[in-house]
Simulated scan of single mutants.
Amino acid sequence: MEDSKRTSEPINFVHQDEIWKAHVKAEKHLAEDWPNKWGFLTEVYKEYERESVKLKNTVTVNLPQLPGPRPATPPQKYIHVGPSPPVPQTTQALIGWRSGHMRLHLDNYGTVHHGRRSFLKELGWPPDGCY
């Protein structure tokens, strides 16, 4: 079919109909010829199905019983949070007001310390090695 965005050229409906008829005729012709060219595939597939049914009936596999999932551990068993400190008076103090107290144990892994590292130092190069 013609591109629908091009409206400046007139559409020839008769020509489009002839193209469509040619496509339909080719499809019909190919559908008639398919069994002669590729029909052997259907027999091979039917044979494959018969063999697979035989194998399914003869082979039985006894798999060992796998253990089921472990029961979930309640969070209270491994998370211990102390009582909250009093609510701050200002909204600016509200940010991080619980995490700042060590007695609440909210920071399980400690504070993060990122030191300054030098790629050149790690490689053992002089500082003026790269520009």
Rank of each mutant, 00 (worst) to 15 (best):
F40W: 14
F40H: 13
F40C: 08
L41W: 07
L41V: 07
L41C: 08
T42R: 04
T42L: 09
T42Q: 06
E43I: 04
E43R: 02
V44T: 11
V44L: 15
V44M: 15
V44Q: 14
Y45P: 00
Y45V: 08
K46P: 01
K46L: 11
E47P: 00
Y48W: 10
Y48L: 12
Y48V: 06
Y48C: 12
Y48E: 11
E49Q: 14
E49W: 08
E49I: 15
R50T: 09
E51D: 09
S52T: 07
S52C: 14
V53F: 04
V53Y: 02
K54A: 11
K54V: 09
L55V: 00
L55S: 04
N57K: 11
N57T: 07
N57V: 00
T58I: 13
V59L: 10
V59N: 00
V59P: 00
L63N: 02
L63M: 04
Q65E: 14
L66C: 01
L66R: 04
L66G: 01
L66K: 05
P67A: 14
G68S: 03
G68T: 01
P69M: 12
R70N: 03
P71T: 11
P71R: 10
A72I: 02
T73L: 12
T73A: 06
T73V: 10
P74T: 05
K77C: 10
Y78H: 03
Y78K: 01
H80F: 13
V81K: 02
V81C: 04
G82E: 01
G82L: 09
P83L: 08
P83N: 09
P86R: 01
V87Q: 08
V87L: 13
V87I: 11
P88F: 01
P88N: 03
T90P: 06
T90E: 11
T90G: 07
Q92V: 09
Q92L: 15
A93Q: 15
L94N: 06
L94C: 09
I95F: 07
I95D: 00
G96V: 06
G96T: 03
G96L: 12
W97A: 08
W97C: 08
R98C: 14
S99F: 06
S99Y: 04
S99L: 09
H101M: 01
H101G: 00
R103W: 14
H105F: 08
H105Y: 07
L106K: 01
L106Q: 07
D107I: 14
N108A: 15
Y109F: 13
Y109P: 00
Y109H: 05
G110K: 04
V112K: 07
V112P: 04
V112W: 09
V112T: 10
V112F: 11
H113S: 07
G115S: 05
G115C: 02
G115Y: 03
G115H: 02
R117L: 14
R117I: 10
S118A: 12
S118Y: 14
S118V: 01
F119S: 10
F119C: 13
F119G: 13
L120M: 13
L120C: 09
K121S: 13
K121A: 15
E122P: 02
E122D: 15
G124S: 05
G124A: 06
W125C: 14
D128A: 13
D128F: 11
G129H: 12
